[in-house]
Design a binder for these strands. Sequence first.
DNA 1: TCCGGAGTTTGTTTCAGAGCAAAGTTCGGC
DNA 2: GCCGAACTTTGCTCTGAAACAAACTCCGGA
Lengths: 231, 231
Amino acid sequence: MPKLDESLLSDLPPFSLLERSQIREILDHAVSRRYEEGTAIFREGHDADRFYLLLDGYLRVVRTTPGGDQIIVLHISPGQLFGIAPALQRDTYPATSIAAAESIALSWPVSLWSDFTANYPGFATESYKTLGQRLGQIQETLTEMATQAVEKRVACALLRMVNQSGRKTAEGIEIAFPITRQNISEMTGTTLHTVSRLLSGWQKDGIVQSTRKHIVVTDPHQLVLLSGMQG
Amino acid sequence: MPKLDESLLSDLPPFSLLERSQIREILDHAVSRRYEEGTAIFREGHDADRFYLLLDGYLRVVRTTPGGDQIIVLHISPGQLFGIAPALQRDTYPATSIAAAESIALSWPVSLWSDFTANYPGFATESYKTLGQRLGQIQETLTEMATQAVEKRVACALLRMVNQSGRKTAEGIEIAFPITRQNISEMTGTTLHTVSRLLSGWQKDGIVQSTRKHIVVTDPHQLVLLSGMQG
DNA sequence: TCCGGAGTTTGTTTCAGAGCAAAGTTCGGC
DNA sequence: GCCGAACTTTGCTCTGAAACAAACTCCGGA
């Protein structure tokens, strides 16, 4: 494997407080790997033997029910830690993570977790901050799921993805990774049919523009109104 | 305030590894307080200035939507830490906690959090373990909410409460704190009417026995079947 | 270039469960 | 012992969205 460059990490929150030499050391223990779209990085219930940092691409964190339905708990974007089960004293991953687009991630054996948190002060802090944000996000989704009708849930899901990964284009803001109606239905607890109908409707109203596996939000403000959110 | 006894903490996971003198020291910084049923310990969005340990009673952790609906995210039972926003670098509580029954809790100012984790090794580990379990639990609820019909969700909710706080009685296993149909509907994203109907039906089938604010599960096995769970 | 599979659209039917309405019941306080 | 508030039960109606069904479109590969 080629030697990794320090600049990969130096701008990311978990590492931003560290010395160049420390980053060098961390990188020397890291394994870098590329994942095709659709590939699993690790699977629910498996031994949590490594923790990860997404360098490039996007991931879906997914849970499967005994009945075989799948739901998407959250998405991971570049720069975020994931699979940090060891931080929570878990010996098994609580969910599966799948590359939503071609992705590159670094990983380390869990045995290094305690070293990292002990030796690199900013690291622990930032990890737990991430965890806190994620917990809040999931609670948010939960309340939404429990109280809102399908249309609002789908609107919220789109907005969340736009906020997390939107990039500006001529027509509006585009979700940066491939996503199907089926995927959206798995984020919102509905069916791909219902999502398709909603999206068609919104297209007609000039709120979104979508092609196969690809969505551009042309009128974010309208979507916010539909989502019924406060902020 | 009377001096608190060391035995209050010595058997609880977050403190079980500590010396008597260390526990003494921790207790000397603690404030103990009693909360009437229905009282808030802290509220969503408020300054996270203290963290807590529930000594006795039960709490509901609750979120309110902009639209005014409430949903119960989880319950806290005696011996558990809660309001541990500082562990996640949050400066504000992400949810409200309310005494489901008369309760007693210890609390400390957040400024002590870093002391605790630094000086008492078992403490940090156990806190994060709790957090991990809670995260898993919420993910579980989320998937359930997204994929299961109302009947299963309510069955699951009952089972979860039974597992967390059930005590054996002559007729079956009793949920240890007062709970209304409304409460259950707020755990499962349905209406109190639907919960009432389900409970009536199950009563007829000899699966539960319920009176006002009080539920006994007489046939847990049947309930497991209804819940469609794997374990 | 054609084929097949994956993703999408649209129509129709059906029903679980929300919403609305109204009694009944229990309990704590006066 | 009475009152009112909080909790529960039950009936009825109506609708959002699931389920079922089928066609259509795009894309990559042989």
